[in-house]
Amino acid sequence: MSTRQTIRLTVNGKPYEREVEARLTLADFIRHELHLGGTHVGCEHGICGACTILIDGSSARACLTLAVQADGANITTVEGLRNRETGQLHPIQQAFVEAHGLQCGFCTPGFMMTTLELLGENPDPSDDEIKEALGGNLCRCTGYQSILDSVRLAARRLQSASAA
């Protein structure tokens, strides 16, 4: 029933080589083979966006991607945000903490990865642009207002950091 294939990919800067079943989702691969549990699975239909990661810099649903499709890819997950040595939070993470952009925190990695992509492309987004970018991520706790605040704060922080 299973076809196994070898894949090579980079996750958060670290190279991996693994043999996987062809049907294994990228979300399950990241979570259960690489033990990076921060990419959460909320619906497995590509609707909720909790499992959003960056594949070669672009946001993608890990639940709708097969691990074998990521062969050769450069992947960033929420674990790649924080400074590896110091543990210092990324400005986006810090902004979500300070602006209370999360409650249960289950959807938050997906929101932050989408934000990372957005602010990379558009360092000073308008509210409408933020909403457009985050329209594919569901949050059941916050009602989104503090998430909007968090992204605004993150944009300001990143801009002043790059200006300095």
């Binding site: 990076l36 549990g37 674990e79 945000l81 999360l102 249960c104 925190g105």
Partner: peptide, 17 residues
């Protein structure tokens, strides 16, 4: 700031799965 949040934004909280 909530004491819950640094772990939650880091993706290191032990949700059951």
């Amino acid at each position: 700031n909530r004491i819950e949040d640094p772990a939650l934004v880091s993706g290191t909280v032990e949700f059951i799965d």
